[in-house]
C-alpha cells in the first residue's frame, strides 16, 4: 500500500494529528490536508484527467475522511486509509459517469480494441525524450491516458504512479489477480498504440 509521506524530525506525526482530529480539532485535520493534498490530488487527477473535477474529488475525499475519522482504528496508516477513500470517491464518480451513458466503461470492448502484437508494438529505438521535450511528452502521455477506459486507467495509475503490488490492486478495486494482469497488459498495449508515433519519431 502507498506509504505515508516522510515526516521531518520534530514534525507532528500522522498519529498525533489524527488523534487530535478525532477529538474535533480542525486545525490538526487542516495539517493533514496540507500534508497529503498533493498526493491525493495527483491520484484523482491521473484517474479523472480533468483538473477541476480532480480538485473537487480530492476535496470530497478529505471531507469523507473527516466524517469517517471516528471509525479510523489506527491499524492501517492514515495515508493508506485516506488513499482508499479517495480511490473509492473517484471510482464512484467514474461509475456514475458510466451510468450517465458514454459507454466508456466497456472494459471488454476496450481490451479487444487493441491490436495485440500488430501495429501496437512501437518500432525503433525507445528514446522518446530525445524527440520531444519533457513537457510535450508529458502532454502526449496525458492525452493517451485520458483515452484509456477508466478501468485501464485505474490499474495504470495504481501500478505506475502508486507502485502498488498486483495483490494490493486486486484488493483495492476489487477484482481477481488475473483481471489485474489482463488490464495492465491491455492498458499498456493501448498506450503503446497511442504513443506509437512518439517512439517512431524518436527513431
Amino acid at each position: 500500500m502507498p506509504a505515508a509521506a516522510a515526516t521531518d524530525p520534530g514534525e507532528v506525526s500522522d498519529i498525533d494529528l489524527v488523534k487530535r482530529s478525532q477529538g474535533g480539532d480542525t486545525r490538526a485535520f487542516d495539517a493533514l490536508v496540507t500534508r497529503y493534498r498533493g498526493r491525493i490530488y495527483a491520484m484523482t487527477y491521473h484517474l479523472i484527467q480533468n483538473e477541476t473535477e480532480a480538485w473537487d474529488l480530492a476535496q470530497e475525499a478529505f471531507i469523507k475522511a473527516w466524517r469517517a475519522l471516528p471509525t479510523f482504528k489506527h491499524d492501517a496508516g492514515f495515508y493508506t486509509w485516506l488513499y482508499r477513500i479517495a480511490h473509492n470517491v473517484c471510482y464512484d464518480w467514474l461509475r456514475k459517469k458510466k451510468i450517465q451513458g458514454d459507454g466508456e466503461f466497456d472494459d471488454e470492448r476496450s481490451e479487444h480494441r487493441v491490436a495485440v502484437g500488430a501495429e501496437a508494438a512501437p518500432r525503433g529505438d525507445l528514446a522518446p525524450d530525445a524527440a520531444l521535450t519533457n513537457a510535450e511528452l508529458g502532454s502526449r502521455i496525458h492525452e493517451a491516458i485520458a483515452k484509456l477506459s477508466p478501468e485501464h486507467r485505474q490499474v495504470i495509475v495504481l501500478r505506475e504512479v502508486e507502485g502498488l503490488a498486483y495483490e494490493e490492486i486486486a484488493a483495492l478495486i476489487p477484482c481477481s489477480l488475473g483481471t489485474v494482469m489482463s488490464r495492465l497488459f491491455y492498458a499498456r498495449k493501448k498506450l503503446q498504440e497511442l504513443l506509437h508515433d512518439v517512439y517512431e519519431n524518436s527513431h
Binding site: M43, P122, D129, I141, I145, I156, E160, V161
Partner: peptide
C-alpha cells in the same frame, strides 16, 4: 513505456 509513464506521472502534484 512503463519507465516513461513513471517519469511523467508524478505521485504528488
Amino acid at each position: 513505456l512503463s519507465d516513461t509513464l513513471r517519469a511523467h506521472m508524478p505521485a504528488e502534484m
